[in-house]
Amino acid sequence: MINMVSVSKVYKPGSAPAVSDVNLHIDQGEFIFLVGPSGAGKTTLIKLISREEMPTAGRIFFLDNDTTIYKEPELLRHRRRMGLVFQDFRLLKSKTVYENVALALEVTGRPPREIKERVPAALARVGLAGKEGSFPNELSGGEQQRVGIARAIVREPLVILADEPTGNVDRETAWGLMDLFETINQGGATVIIATHAWDLVDCLKKRVITLEKGQVIGDEQQGSYNHAH
């Protein structure tokens, strides 16, 4: 599904590469943890897959299409196949929970009737039924992240990309969120999570890709967080 071929990314000419000569193959329906120390290149890798960033070298294929040559229309289609979840939730404080989730459908021009059906369903999936009218600042951190996840899944994307989704919540809430990601993955979506939460990684026994200084130094099925890194 996702194929990265000799991918490198240098933000400023002359500086160290954020990602260096990465080769990865990710199949549909996989659940993957990206781990590694801060600055290892996890966020850059996620941005490269979502095509928020362009690689300096190499090719990234999504469903056999080269994403590095996408023009605006293909790029929009590509982004609409992804569901993004952020550490800081990135919810709009002036919008209600319902409006935040609906935005993901509105930007693709979905009809109001469909939005009215899909938004409550997505909120129910993340356990937030009945919170439609609340504003983000009326919710706990865990609940806000669930809204972020509902927004990511409401379009039923092929891939969920989550960058430190448990970084701003307590341990117990983090476990709840991981359960949610597993459920989403069981529904058929590929889930890629960049994280520092070693205990979650070790416990869930999923594929673990370890990065250091922009390079892939480990790639294990049913892997664990390498404490040395």
Partner: peptide, 10 residues
């Protein structure tokens, strides 16, 4: 920014 991430056109 969020809208761009969600795939909104310019």
């Amino acid at each position: 920014g969020i809208m761009k991430h969600l795939g909104a056109s310019n």
